[in-house]
Design a protein around this nucleic acid. Sequence first.
RNA 1: GGAGGCGUGGCUGAGUGGCCGAAAGCAGCUCACUGCUAAUGAGUUGACCGCCUUAAAAGUGGUCCGCAGGUUCGAAUCCUGCCGCCUCCGCCA
Length: 433
Amino acid sequence: MLDIKFIRENLDKVRAAIKNKNSNANLDHALTLDDQRRKLIIESEAIRSRRNEITADLQKEKKEDLIEESKKLKEMLGMKETELKEIEAQWLVAMQEIPNIPLPDVPVGADETENQVLKKWGEPTEFKFEPKDHLQLGEALDIIDMTRAVKISGARFGFKKGGAAMLDAALMQFAFKALTDPQIIQQIAGSVGVSPKPFIPVLPPVMIKPDVYTRTGRLSPQDEDEKYKMAKDELYLIGSAEHTLVAMHMDESINEKDIPLRYVGFSTCFRREAGSYGKDTKGMLRVHQFDKVEMESFTSAANSLAEHKFLVAVQEYLMQQLELPYQVVINSTGDMGKPNARQVDIETWLPGQKKYRETHSADYMTDYQARRLNIRIKRADGSSEYAHTNDATGIAMSRIPIAIMENNQMEDGSIRVPKVLIPFIGSDVIKKQ
RNA sequence: GGAGGCGUGGCUGAGUGGCCGAAAGCAGCUCACUGCUAAUGAGUUGACCGCCUUAAAAGUGGUCCGCAGGUUCGAAUCCUGCCGCCUCCGCCA
């Protein structure tokens, strides 16, 4: 959520952001509600003030007429407050529809076709044979079974077995080990000039209360179709560890000396993929359930953009260690999340599709999430500011294993294990058992 | 799921109808003093939301003792519901 004072003073910027992000937020409606809201606050506070006066007077001496007045005022106050509560609720809904303002370097564009490639690393993998896609490879190796999963759970689910199961576990351990390693983090942090503090590993809950989900900026009425909701309990399944990690410090003040506060989380992620019928229907690229290593960071405003770049640098480090060819893309305004001020995606080369496909995202939220979640940074002098939040994919288990399988495939259909994963898998090749 | 207890500021903890935004201690900040990685003394320090203000400060009004209601002229204090924590029982990986 944006600061209402900022909105009032920067109407043009906010209008431009709504337009460029293809948002259907109704700014004028939000402003009207804000006026009504403030009017009601002034009125009800005046009544309260008078009642407080009366109470003070009555303490000295009992007077029937004052008691009568206070009773009447109380009735009026009740009405005002009921009205205020309704307006405030509507106002919050309207406010939460208003997207964050893109940074000046974000390309203005309608959709992902106007994203810009910032950097390429590695070359698309060359093969002396016709490369297969991960599903062909996985089925031949008997490590991916989509057919049985359909029977058990439906479309867009899969069983990962043998080498595929080991690969996911190895990636998780590899990422956790790297991100908690002071030397590695110091080296990456040095390159972008941020604190060398390592990440704190976390296994967060995968279910979240609707109210909290809303406050992360990740659950608006339009998003509802994308989420799984528990029928009996007021709980959603998270779409990413980001959702419970960023909410971890909800309604808290983080001490300035504790920032940057960096977490690396691992969780299963749940996506209904309601809007993507017919898209990526083959294999594990787009599934309802996958595991993901996720980074989340809390900083002050002064360091947040550098932190965003740091998280991208971490992503690149992991990719280079895994020796996967990728490109770094800055998303255009039309392809950004609502809470984002800037979004960088990493796309990894998939020989099975002969395309770069999105495997990572790094989200720079400024104080947009923290305002609604009420997360503050408390400075040593006692003053405070809203925290700035950043999140970024560490390793998405459905997509990076796919990239490894497809890029590292050999002519006989076996898969070369990246060097850094060999210790975790105990073998340098995944082959037919 | 059943029975009982508890929920106060950054922390510990007092407060059972108005003198309480809340004692005291700790922590923090400022100053003084002492040459030893800190002790001692004095002072000081809650958060949030309106209004005012170009902005901030100041000023001013309001709210906050788990949350939401209720009783009362007046609630941290009494009542109801909810949430959380603890103890015991049940169930369970």
